[in-house]
Simulated scan of single mutants.
Amino acid sequence: MSDDAFGARMVAQMPYLRAFAISLSGSYSLADDLVQETLVKAWSHADSFQPGTNFRAWLVTILRNTYFSDYRKRSREVQDSDNVLAEQIPVKGGQEAKATMADVQNALNELPPEQREILLMIGITELSYEEAAQICNVPIGTVKSRLNRARAKLAEHLGLTTLNDIDSDPTVSDLATRMPGRVV
């Protein structure tokens, strides 16, 4: 069968396909999409049609299988056209988080060892000022000043200039929120 003849047969079946698609989906717009997808699949698999068999039945089978495949797929999906649910996802994509974490690690490596040590003790291990002072054998005031300098240098290395810059980046804000009395 030539492409023109095959195409003409498909066009002739469109009203029947559309009626069946409407009855399956209950929606005119979904039905139109379903018919279009069916015709694309039929055209791309024209060689699988057996001449002498029922052409309409073959197209209806493709339409029905496409509908149920899409239906199963849609049942696993959640409509979120206004991004309300997407905005609730606490972690950004893996690539961004890894790149940000690499930037944070590089910035931490740029800090003097005594500042980095205090920053990690208080920011990551969540030690109190008193505990950090005891471990480092320095006064609490020294811990606070090292921490303040470390935060400022970290923010400078990361190009963060305001509190909003830190709060908008989950990787950095997670580190920063664990630091009492942060000043940027």
Rank of each mutant, 00 (worst) to 15 (best):
G93M: 04
T66W: 03
L30V: 06
S2L: 10
E117P: 01
P51C: 11
I62S: 01
A155W: 05
V143Q: 12
S25W: 10
T61L: 08
K73R: 15
T61D: 13
E87D: 07
F55H: 06
R72F: 13
W58C: 03
C136G: 00
L119D: 02
A97W: 08
E110D: 12
E130V: 14
V60D: 08
S2A: 04
M10S: 05
A99N: 07
E110L: 13
T161P: 00
I89F: 10
P139S: 09
P113I: 06
T125V: 04
E96W: 12
G181T: 11
N54C: 11
L30D: 15
K144W: 10
S81V: 04
Q134F: 01
N65E: 07
I62R: 01
K73V: 11
L17A: 06
I118F: 07
V84D: 09
A46K: 11
I166R: 09
Y16S: 15
A99Y: 11
A86H: 06
V143T: 13
Y28R: 00
Y129M: 08
Q95I: 08
V11R: 15
A152K: 15
Q88F: 03
Q105E: 06
D174Q: 09
C136M: 15
E114I: 06
T38I: 01
A102Q: 13
R56N: 09
K41C: 03
V104K: 08
R9G: 07
D4I: 13
G123Y: 04
T161K: 14
A8V: 06
T61F: 00
V91R: 06
L108D: 12
